[in-house]
C-alpha cells in the first residue's frame, strides 16, 4: 500500500476556519455605506492542522462528539469545502451522503436519477442500464415522472439513497446513513451497503453508533474539538471516544 496512486485521498496539513460575521454586510449597498465600519468577523477554528491518507478500497470511520469537526472534515475530504491551509489530493469522484444525495426539487424523479448518475461519473448508457434497478429499489415506479417537490421527505430520501446505492462514486462519504426510510427499507439498505459499498469502494463512514464503526471500518479517526487526536486501528479509536463520553 504505498505508492501514491494507491491512495484515494491524501490530505496534508489541512485546516479550516470559518468567519462568522455578526452584521449583515452581504449587499453592495451595505458594503458601500459601511466602508469605514467593516463587519465584525468572529473566527471559529473548526479544524486544526491535520494530515491523513485514505487507501483505495478501505473503509475508515470518523468518530467524535457533536461539534468535533466530523462534518467539516468530510466536506473538506470530499472537495466540497476549500481548505485554508495544506493540500488535498482526491483520486476519483466523491459523494457526500447525508440522508440522500443532492437533488433538485424542480426536476422529476427520472431527471434526478439521470442528473445525479451523471454527476457521479456515469455515462448515459450506464444510467440506462441501472435505471430500473434504482426505481425498483426506491419503490417509486408509479411516481417516476412526478417532480420530487410533491414527494414526501421519506420518498425523497429513498430515491437519494437508491441513486447512491446503484450509481455510487469512487469515494463515498456516508454520514449517519442508516436512518433512511422505514425498517424494511433499512434492512434492504444495510444488505446493499455490505455487498456493494464495503466490498467495492472507498468509504468514509461517520456515525455515533460504535457497533457500525467497529463492524465495517479497519481504521478510524477520533476527533475532539477540531483536533485529530488519533488515526489508526478502530478498536483504539472507539476506546478513546467512549472514554471521552464517560
Amino acid at each position: 500500500m504505498s505508492t501514491e496512486h494507491n491512495f484515494s485521498i491524501v490530505a496534508r496539513n489541512i485546516s479550516k476556519t470559518f468567519q462568522i460575521t455578526e452584521d449583515s454586510h452581504n449587499t453592495v449597498k451595505h458594503r458601500l455605506f459601511n466602508l469605514f465600519n467593516p463587519p465584525r468577523a468572529k473566527k471559529v477554528l473548526a479544524l486544526k492542522s491535520m494530515s491523513l491518507d485514505v487507501v483505495k478500497g478501505e473503509s475508515i470511520g470518523l468518530i467524535g462528539r457533536n461539534g468535533s469537526g466530523k462534518s467539516t472534515l468530510t466536506k473538506l475530504l470530499a472537495g466540497v469545502y476549500k481548505t485554508d491551509t495544506g493540500s488535498i489530493d482526491i483520486n476519483g469522484t466523491t459523494m457526500l451522503m447525508n440522508l440522500g444525495v443532492g437533488m433538485s426539487h424542480e426536476l422529476t424523479a427520472r431527471e434526478n436519477i439521470y442528473v445525479s448518475g451523471s454527476v457521479l461519473g456515469l455515462k448515459i448508457k450506464d444510467i440506462d442500464a441501472i435505471f430500473d434497478e434504482i426505481v425498483d429499489f426506491a419503490e417509486l415506479r408509479e411516481f417516476i415522472d412526478t417532480k420530487i417537490k410533491f414527494f414526501s421527505s421519506g420518498m425523497v430520501a429513498r430515491l437519494g439513497f437508491s441513486i447512491a446505492v446503484k450509481a455510487g462514486a469512487d469515494i463515498m462519504f456516508l454520514d449517519e446513513i442508516f436512518a433512511v426510510g422505514d425498517m424494511k427499507f433499512q434492512e434492504k439498505a444495510v444488505k446493499v451497503f455490505e455487498s456493494s459499498w464495503i466490498k467495492g469502494k472507498t468509504v468514509v463512514l461517520v456515525s455515533h453508533t460504535m457497533d457500525i464503526i467497529q463492524k465495517y471500518c479497519q481504521r478510524s479517526a477520533y476527533l475532539k474539538k477540531g483536533e485529530l487526536i488519533y488515526f489508526g486501528d478502530t478498536a483504539t479509536a472507539v476506546e478513546m471516544y467512549l472514554k471521552d463520553n464517560e
Partner: peptide, 10 residues
C-alpha cells in the same frame, strides 16, 4: 444549482 456541487466534487 447548489444541489449539483454540494454533495460531490463536480
Amino acid at each position: 444549482k447548489k444541489y449539483l456541487y454540494e454533495y460531490t466534487n463536480m
